[in-house]
Write a protein that binds this DNA or RNA. Structure first.
Length: 188
DNA sequence: AAAAGAGACAACCGCGAGTGT
DNA sequence: GACACTCGCGGTTGTCTCTTT
């Protein structure tokens, strides 16, 4: 049994204050990201490294794009989710300025409902039989609704991280009912 | 105007993978 | 090979804000 890293010392939990944010920003700007475990102490924060990392990645990073998702981003998110399932970090990697947490939250609160309203099961991207095909504005067809695009997490089954693009190509070919046109990977 | 409910988002937790010794 | 440790991910929960009654 491994001990939780954050239990080892007295750490603050809950919402971050502006002062804490500023300390973390100042430290990372001066020293880089480095070892998250040592950052809290070095930056003078009573937070665990995990919490610092999360705060930086999801909120403080200068390259983050705040605000609503555009239609293009949502479109791409749907396509990527059809391919990758709940691999939010991979999906976020294709949406510049977006974080996995942001993508995950947006999916759970907005996109699920959006897909359901279009008669699409948000889990497997199949058309629901209850709804007629013409109500779906996408290109999926009824006869193709038996395709299940869920990809297993097991790395022996699919090597996602190494080359997403090649997998997209492969999966896209095997899923004629999913109009998956994924743009090339953006530079970080 | 106040209370209740719903929605959105930030943050935490536990686990698995990767790496060094 | 076994172990210890850190990092990163996805699921879940907590809390704040907005909307409805």
């Amino acid at each position: 049994m491994r001990k939780a890293v954050c239990d080892k010392q007295k750490t603050i939990k809950g919402a971050w204050t502006k002062q804490e944010d500023q300390r973390l920003i100042n430290y990372i700007q001066a020293h880089g990201e480095g070892s998250w475990r040592s950052i809290p102490q070095a930056a003078g924060l009573l937070r665990c490294g995990k919490s610092c990392r999360l705060r930086w990645i999801n909120y403080l990073r200068p390259d983050l794009k705040r605000g609503n998702f555009t239609e293009d981003e949502e479109d791409l998110m749907i396509k990527l989710h059809a391919l990758l399932g709940n691999r939010w970090s991979l999906i976020a990697g294709r949406l510049p300025g977006r974080t996995d947490n942001e993508v995950k939250n947006h999916w759970n609160s907005h996109m699920k409902k959006k897909l359901q309203s279009l008669g699409i099961d948000p889990n497997n991207h199949r058309l629901n039989h209850a709804r007629p095909c013409q109500h779906h504005k996408g290109s999926a067809t009824c006869h193709g609704s038996h395709n299940n695009v869920h990809l297993h997490r097991n790395k022996e089954e699919v090597q996602v991280d190494s080359d997403v693009s090649s997998k997209i190509e492969k999966v896209g070919c095997s899923l004629p009912d999913l109009n998956i046109g994924i743009p090339p990977l953006h530079a970080p």
